[in-house]
C-alpha cells in the first residue's frame, strides 16, 4: 500500500507519508504544473484555517488560478 510505513526501507525513490527512517519528504516541482507532495497532508492557509487530504499524493496549485485552491484543478493548462 502506498501509505504503508513498512515500505520505507525498500523504496528510495518515492516513499510513504510517515517517514520512520527520518528521510526527507519528497516534493516534485515542475515549471508549469502543481507541486506533487506525498500525502496525507495538512495545509495551513493564509487565514489560519487548515485543509487536509489523505490521498497517496496531492497536487498543490502553484499558478494561483485553481478554483479548488490549494488543490490543483488543472487551471494552469494552456488555453487555445
Amino acid at each position: 500500500m502506498p501509505n504503508d510505513p513498512c515500505d520505507a526501507a525498500a523504496d528510495d525513490s518515492a516513499g510513504p507519508a510517515q517517514d520512520a527512517a527520518g528521510r526527507a519528504r519528497r516534493i516534485s516541482m515542475q515549471r508549469r504544473g502543481p507541486l506533487l507532495v506525498e500525502g496525507p497532508v495538512e495545509i495551513e492557509l493564509e487565514d489560519g484555517s487548515t485543509v487536509r487530504s489523505d490521498r497517496f499524493r496531492v497536487a498543490l496549485c502553484t499558478c494561483r488560478r485553481s478554483r479548488r485552491y490549494p488543490w490543483c484543478d488543472t487551471s494552469h493548462r494552456r488555453k487555445a
Binding site: R55, R57, W71, C72, D73, T74
Partner: peptide, 14 residues
Amino acid sequence: HVTADAVHEQVVRH
C-alpha cells in the same frame, strides 16, 4: 474527480 484526477494525471504521465 476534479482534484483526484488532477493528481492522477500527473502520476500517470510521469
